[in-house]
Design a protein around this nucleic acid. Structure first.
Lengths: 304, 304
DNA sequence: TCCGGGTGGTTCATTTTTGAAACACGGTGT
DNA sequence: ACACCGTGTTTCAAAAATGAACCACCCGGA
């Protein structure tokens, strides 16, 4: 099979050919496939040029298929049948809904109740698979690295459809034992586990603005998981989103504080996929679940 | 069958889909179908957008078909098969060569030896039909009123491929009897049959410049056929292209003259069809025949 | 005869598509 | 470590395609 032979034609021009063949006029054909009649005339002319022969005789009665036009008609019709069948595959796959949703989310969310939501979704919609990737790197939706991305951020700047599900609260968490050492003295003698601050700094702006301005920034980690586990080991206090800290069985909120506003939970998807049934279903499902439990994310008493 | 369903996709995008599926990379696919790789990437992206789902997973190993991509593959392949088969019809029809050539030519040429040429062509190429329309109106090749047009003109201005076959000579013709009256006196007492000159004018610029400046422009016709038949009836002298006058059994060249340069015989075709085998064959055939008999059109003794 | 509707065609501004050049990245070989 | 190659992506200018407005023509009905 020589690709060049079949590729000399624009396959899409068959739509125009069929439309004219069935209607007998340029305007009728244009209405049929909802393009401008000029476009139809031009596309047909280009097709006739590529074929090197006329496909229609122009007469007062309209456009009548030439012998070649008639010879090509069954091929065009069969192409149309294949495309229609293919479209059924596409629509059917979309409408059930079924298929795979590629989801990316940061590590921290793996320890939130959102996981329960994902499991429930998968249970309710067994024809939809969730392909989940946990990564703190921002997934590039425009590169189609994922269909849906959950992110914790102040705001989003990427060319995506963003939906802020809820704003989060954060608080300092420690073990029950560590909490016995805490007095209402601004954090005197306490240790904080930090997050990327320059090594050597014993405080930071956010520490000064916290309920424990005297606490020392004595440790640093680069991931949420060790931040939680080290705090649960008694190393010090860790500032965590409440939806994380409140769920950990070995941590309590440190005394003498009020929760503070933190970033928001965003659900992002590429605009190309927003009309896909399964994606839409997933988005609505998750948003509803988060909304019904919003006080788990933005807790009572949170003040600026 | 709902046309909208099959029409939501650009059928031509299947070429791009198939190319990537078979090569596994964007650049490989682009080389395969000879488009720029950026074009391929974009067309694929558009197709994925229209489908509403990814057709390829992007990995280090390249682009791998998703399940949907695999599901669509056989449909795409069958469309390709149909298009290949259709192309064989087109190429085969072109290459034989066969089909119809739509030819338009002025009335006067119906009485030239060119008719013998057309008959010979049709005899030698029985698979090619000649659809001939005689008309003095200029056929609009850009409107595809004809594939090929023969014209007698000084030059052509239409956006067509023009090929001048030969320049013509013209001379005054009359009956043998009428010739008995002719003296070498500049046409004194002779009648000329004219062609569209204003009624009432007894002479014209071309008469003054002819070999019979004293002849009177006494009659007018609006077509070549009556011009010839009236001259052959003895009404007077008629200026005709030599390829016409010399062939008429009832006419001779009037005495005391030299043939003069006349217009040229042009063969015109729309540039879109110049590579069509049968048109090319016809053009070359006719040009060759005319060339081999060129002294029938530009006769000996023709002077400016 | 005139008018309205439907036809195909022309022109022009706008939008879309394409190709080329440049870039970034990862893998391989020296 | 560096250079090279093949990959996909970005940017921009040029080319192509599209749609809208308008026109000319033909036909049928009043």
């Amino acid at each position: 099979m020589n690709l060049q032979e079949s590729h000399s034609l624009n396959w899409d021009d068959l739509k125009y050919f069929l439309a004219v063949a069935r209607s007998g006029t340029l305007r009728g054909g244009a209405d049929r496939i909802q393009v401008n009649h000029t476009t139809l005339a031009r596309r047909l002319a280009v097709m006739e040029e590529n074929v090197g022969s006329r496909l229609f005789d122009r007469s007062k009665a309209g456009l009548v298929l030439t012998q070649l036009g008639e010879d090509l008609m069954p091929y065009a019709e069969r192409v149309e049948e294949e495309m229609t069948a293919a479209s059924r595959i596409i629509v059917g796959r979309d409408a059930l809904p079924s298929g795979t949703i590629y989801l990316t989310l940061p590590h921290g969310l793996a320890m939130t109740s959102l996981m329960d939501d994902l499991a429930l979704f998968a249970e309710q919609y067994p024809d939809i698979s969730l392909n989940m990737r946990f990564s703190n790197e921002v997934a590039d939706l425009t590169r189609r690295e994922a269909d849906v991305s959950l992110r914790i951020a102040d705001e989003v700047t990427q060319d995506v459809v963003g939906r802020r599900l809820v704003q989060l609260s954060q608080a300092a968490y420690c073990t029950k034992d560590y909490a016995q050492r805490i007095r209402d003295n601004g954090g005197e003698g306490l240790s904080l586990i930090g997050w990327h601050e320059p090594e050597g700094d014993t405080t930071a702006k956010w520490v000064q603005e916290s309920c424990y301005p005297k606490a020392l920034l004595r440790h640093r980690v680069s991931d949420i998981v060790p931040l939680i586990t080290l705090a649960a080991s008694g190393l010090g206090m860790a500032y965590l989103a409440c939806c994380l800290g409140d769920r950990h069985p070995g941590l309590i909120r440190a005394p003498f504080q009020k929760p503070k506003p933190y970033r928001s939970l965003w659900l992002l998807l590429h605009k190309d996929l927003r009309n896909t049934a399964r994606v839409r279903l997933f988005v609505d499902f998750l948003a509803g679940r988060v909304q019904s439990r919003r006080n788990e994310f933005w807790v009572a008493g949170t003040t600026g």
